[in-house]
């Protein structure tokens, strides 16, 4: 009961701050931007003066799998940045402004507070990501050739898990600091750190969440889900639960 009250309050807050309008729109634009640019690239080069005389450059039209992956690539950079900006003052802002004390002066369980906020942000982000990737998939079908819908669905589910992982990191960092800028910086630093570790020790850490985007890319081309991919999905879920638990524990021990 209590959980759903906090969740609904958070949803109302997203409606009031118009996040429910602009976040889906921004993800929609991220989803289709690259496909459109790629499609018009030869014409853009022509219009801006063209190639020098005699230079013959053929820009091959990318296969559909690669075209859909461009949307995911866009989410990997700009999408992560937007999620970081959305989550930077989620709990930190309330710690700072004193709303947090107000909320917890009532008998609210820390676990309810953290998980409800996490679920609210996840709903917003996953819905927006779904819209963006769906648009990207639609444009891929129109411009670059057919791609089965199950590929889109699996890509959404698996990459969505990576976005959830990042949201969880951001929530975890939220419980440490009161300054939103610091939270944004640290959560992005942590996800970069995960990716760097994965690229250095990738041979050992085949189940690291940092592999998700490359596994999704491989899946889009081949169409089989490898055991490494299942392993990665498992680790990511475990890490999400662990980080949420840690966030609750940190918040409990926090002096106000």
């Amino acid at each position: 009961m209590q959980w759903s009250v906090i969740f609904k309050r958070e949803m109302m807050e997203y409606v009031r701050s118009i996040k429910w309008i602009w976040v889906p729109i921004v993800f929609f634009i991220f989803g289709i931007m690259d496909q459109i640019t790629m499609y018009y690239l030869p014409k853009i080069i022509d219009a801006t003066g063209g190639m020098p005389e005699g230079a013959e450059v053929n820009i091959p039209s990318p296969p559909p799998a690669e075209a859909l992956f461009m949307s995911i690539n866009e989410m990997n950079t700009l999408g992560i940045l937007i999620i970081g900006l959305l989550s930077m003052s989620l709990i930190a802002g309330e710690l700072k402004s004193g709303v947090y004390e107000l909320v917890l002066s009532k008998p609210v369980k820390y676990a309810n507070y953290v998980t409800a906020k996490w679920a609210a942000l996840s709903t917003l982000v996953l819905a927006s990501f779904f819209i963006g990737l769906l648009a990207g998939w639609y444009y891929t079908n129109i411009l670059f050739g057919e791609l089965a819908i199950d590929k889109f669905l699996v890509a959404f589910l698996v990459y969505g898990l990576y976005l959830l992982f990042f949201i969880t990191i951001a929530i975890f960092v939220n419980t440490w600091f009161k300054r939103p800028g610091m939270v944004l910086f640290l959560s992005i630093l942590l996800i970069i750190f995960v990716n760097i570790i994965t690229s250095i020790l990738g041979h050992f850490l085949t189940w690291s969440p940092g592999h998700i985007s490359s596994y999704v890319s491989t899946y889009l081309f081949t169409g089989n889900i490898t055991t490494e991919m299942w392993g990665t999905i498992g680790t990511t879920i475990v890490l999400i639960i662990g980080l949420l638990y840690a966030a609750v524990e940190v918040l409990k021990r926090k002096e106000l």
Binding site: W22, I25, V26, I36
Partner: peptide
């Protein structure tokens, strides 16, 4: 092809 992009930009 470009209409959705412009519409969405305008809404924003």
């Amino acid at each position: 092809l470009l209409a959705p992009l412009f519409i969405v930009e305008f809404i924003l």
